[in-house]
Amino acid sequence: MSQSTVRARHRAARRPSTPLTQLASTATAQMAVVGRRTAVVAASSGLVVSVLGAAPAIAEPNDASGLASVDTATLTGAARAALDAAPVVTAPDQATWTLDVDDVTAVKPAPVVKAKTTATSRTATATSRSTVRAAATVAAPPSVAGSAVLQIAARYVGVPYVYGGTTPSGFDCSGFTQYVYAQLGISLPRTAEAQRSAGTVVSRADAQPGDLIYSPGHIAIYAGGDMEIDSPRPGGTVQFRSIWQSAPVFIRVS
């Protein structure tokens, strides 16, 4: 008969449990919980207080959670101290802004005053015009004294040529002859071409001072001999001058 060699197994010996070891085990478990709750933030001041490494408080026998309590009064006091030490900035309900700039003075420009025409200025203008006329005057032929037309025409020697002009302020060629003849009560057409047909054509040998001299595009007044008086061209003035037309037509107006 074989003999069994299997030995009986026994539980390993454990450290004997005493009230002291149970207390130590409980304290270790509570410290682990407190270690996970080590950071306390004081939100009102931005202060972060760490209680890492702080000795855990022993749970009160009557604490329902069985966890160690933390002294929050000390943390609250530290946060309040930080707030009290922080600078305080205040502003009034109605704030005003000021800006330092140099004084600027607006200066109103002086009004432009137009010079008024006075008797003195008119006299000076008339004198100047008379001077121009005198400078432009060529010795009048002897026939002026014997012709009423030439006597009137000679008054306007020096008046400037003005295109379309019909007054002593300025004449063109036909405006001048029309104005001179109008002083004698004789009405002439407005243009040189129309005045060409206003009278009777005469030969140069039969022409008399005061007759009209026509050439295409121009009209003048015969002054006797080889002279005429007319308002010649832009930039010119009424003047006595030699007959310049190559084939003038003499016209007697009655």
Rank of each mutant, 00 (worst) to 15 (best):
S25F: 08
E228F: 03
V132S: 13
V104D: 06
S174T: 09
V249I: 15
D63N: 12
I243S: 07
E60Y: 10
L47N: 03
G225V: 00
M227N: 04
T200A: 06
V6L: 12
Q30M: 06
G199I: 03
T28A: 15
P248F: 02
G236E: 03
Y222L: 00
T166S: 10
L47F: 01
Y179S: 07
S44L: 09
Q22A: 14
T90C: 01
T72N: 08
V51K: 12
V88D: 12
D100G: 12
Y181Q: 05
F171S: 08
A153P: 06
Q239M: 09
T72C: 12
Q30F: 00
A194F: 05
A68F: 02
P56F: 06
T76Y: 12
Q178M: 14
M1Y: 09
A64N: 09
S45F: 02
R133L: 09
L75F: 04
T123K: 14
G35R: 13
S69M: 12
T200D: 07
G170Q: 00
P248D: 00
Q30H: 03
R155P: 02
V238N: 00
G185R: 02
T28V: 12
D63E: 06
Y163H: 11
F176H: 01
R252T: 09
Q3C: 11
S45T: 15
D71N: 15
P56L: 08
V253I: 15
V157I: 12
A140Y: 04
I243P: 00
Q94T: 13
Y156V: 08
P56D: 02
A148I: 09
Y156D: 13
T123G: 15
T96A: 14
Y163R: 03
G224Q: 08
T21I: 11
P232W: 02
V70T: 14
R129Y: 13
V101G: 08
V107N: 11
V238W: 06
T38C: 10
S130T: 15
Y156K: 02
A95E: 07
D206N: 02
P168I: 08
Q30A: 13
S231Q: 05
A12G: 13
Q151L: 07
S65G: 07
V159T: 15
R36N: 12
D172V: 06
Y163S: 07
L67S: 01
S242N: 04
G165W: 03
S246M: 01
G35D: 14
V40T: 09
I229M: 06
L75I: 12
A64C: 07
G53Y: 04
V40N: 10
V238M: 08
Y156F: 15
T118L: 09
V48G: 10
S143G: 05
S45G: 05
V149N: 04
G46L: 05
R190V: 08
I186G: 01
L184V: 02
V49K: 00
A8N: 13
